[in-house]
């Protein structure tokens, strides 16, 4: 499988990364090189093989549904580029 210019633009938009037309052409070539490289995986017979989901067989750890942490909104927003009264500020999203 290979990607065309329109696909690279669509994927970049899905990934929320602005790209220039010149960048798109560069990424297209590189993505196609990588996709060509990984193509060899299709020759492996994986019928009856389960996908690997964990390295060591282990049960998902459960914990009590209790509040163990929190109540420091000022620390949470301390690194944000724009905040007000303990909230993150973003451009208007609802008209």
């Amino acid at each position: 499988m290979s990607v065309d210019t329109a696909t690279v633009k669509r994927v970049a938009h899905l990934a929320r990364i602005a790209v220039t037309d010149a960048e798109v052409e560069g990424f297209k070539a590189e993505l196609n090189t990588i996709l060509g490289f990984v193509e060899q995986l299709s020759e492996v017979d994986v019928s009856a093989v389960e996908p690997m989901t964990s390295v060591v067989a282990m049960k998902m750890k459960m914990r009590a549904d209790e509040v163990t942490d929190g109540f420091y909104a000022d620390k949470i927003v301390a690194n944000a580029p724009a905040t007000e009264d303990g909230f993150f500020l973003v451009p208007k999203v609802v008209e």
Binding site: R16, N79, A80, P91, V93
Partner: peptide, 19 residues
């Protein structure tokens, strides 16, 4: 660009800010 680090754009809305 909302919770930490670099923030650019946003003049054309939230997607513009992200991208």
């Amino acid at each position: 660009g909302v919770r930490f680090g670099l923030r650019q754009g946003g003049g054309d809305g939230i997607v513009d800010l992200y991208e």
